[in-house]
Design a protein around this nucleic acid. Structure first.
Length: 285
RNA sequence: GCAGGGUUAGUGAAGCGGUCAAACACGUCAGACUGUAAAUCUGAUGGCUUAUGCCUUCGUAGGUUCGAAUCCUACACCCUGCA
């Protein structure tokens, strides 16, 4: 008797992940776990291109709408919840599909990242008050070198110190796991992003953002999301609608590129250009 | 038509005789990432596969100078004051 596999689907925003997993989950009797750092927020629907309620009726989607935009959430928490959900789905005799664009969230569960379980929040707040120079000295004492960590990235520096060193996973893929990557051409991706932005605006993005701002303000944790944060200067009258759209496009393209470089280095990803190709890979698996 | 301001690399914008292939910002390309990750950060960015090297750039054409993006002349286009 074979163990139930875990099928992972990754890809840049707007590459067609959601449609693809939906198709696969229907075909293979599965449920979907969304690995996305923004669709976890309640009320942030249009701008995050969250799966529609129709789609959610067809196939069960997990880890959507689990926190309010002003609540804290992180990769470690995601890993915990995702692992639990995977077991639940398996318990129901179904295949879990983990899909999303947040590389860290995916890697966290697939490569079993050790997220520094012993972290003491007091240490962190203390570290955050120190100057970068002091942090560097501390890092040197811990024998952290430039190669270990980017000293100019304060955030990474602090984390490395609080952990007492660099924890590198051995990059061993979890058992019985298939990672599918969607690869569409650059031009195709760019035009899909543009179309999606137009669609979002037509669907009432502005209204959604206004509502969220009135409830939480732009400073809320989730509100630094692309397609949300850009509205601030538009609302202030500093930008035209065309400029706003351009800004949204630019930011999502830059994000897509960052996603691509994250996924590019993962040699376990099996790249597919269509869902038929993906289906074949799943069958073989 | 007369007077004044402007024209700089993909874009915006500094520079106003040498140390200028030309600050800076944005974009673009590449990279990093193990508890904020749609975040945060790094590098490259005129060409020459490597350069403390060479070549071609600062509206166009000439000129002055040992030396010009920087000064002079003419021309083109753009904005402004008087007509």
């Amino acid at each position: 008797m074979k163990k139930t596999p875990l099928v992972v689907v990754v890809g840049a925003t707007a590459s067609g992940k959601s449609e693809m997993v939906l198709e696969l989950a229907e075909k293979f009797n599965g449920e979907i776990i969304c690995a996305d750092s923004r669709t976890i927020y309640k009320g942030m629907d249009i701008g995050t291109a969250k799966p529609s309620s129709e789609d959610r009726l067809k196939i069960k989607h997990h880890l959507l709408d689990i926190v309010a935009p002003d609540e804290e959430f992180n990769a470690a928490e995601f890993k915990r919840l995702a692992n639990r959900t995977i077991e639940e789905i398996k318990g129901r005799g179904k295949i879990p599909f983990l899909a999303g664009g947040t590389g860290l969230y995916i890697s966290g569960v697939v490569y079993d990242y050790g997220f520094g379980d012993k972290k003491d929040p007091l240490i962190r707040t203390r570290l955050e008050k120190e100057t970068t120079e002091d942090l560097k000295k501390k890092a040197k004492k811990l024998a952290l070198t430039e190669d270990d960590i980017n000293f100019k990235n304060r955030r990474h520096l602090i984390r490395a110190i609080e952990r007492g060193g660099i924890i590198k996973g051995d990059d061993k893929l979890r058992d019985n796991c298939l990672i599918l990557g969607i690869d569409i051409g650059q031009d195709e991706l760019k035009s899909r992003i543009r179309k999606r932005i137009d669609r979002m605006i037509k669907s009432g993005l502005e209204k959604e953002v206004r509502k969220l701002v009135s409830m939480y303000s732009f400073n809320a944790a989730g509100m630094d999301a692309i397609c949300y944060k850009e509205w601030q200067s538009y609302f202030a009258g500093e930008q035209s609608l065309a400029e706003l759209k351009e800004e949204m496009y630019k930011n999502t393209w830059q994000y897509a590129r960052r996603q691509k470089t994250w996924f590019r280095r993962d040699k376990n990803i099996r790249w597919a250009t269509s869902s038929d190709e993906a289906s074949v890979l799943v069958y073989q698996f």
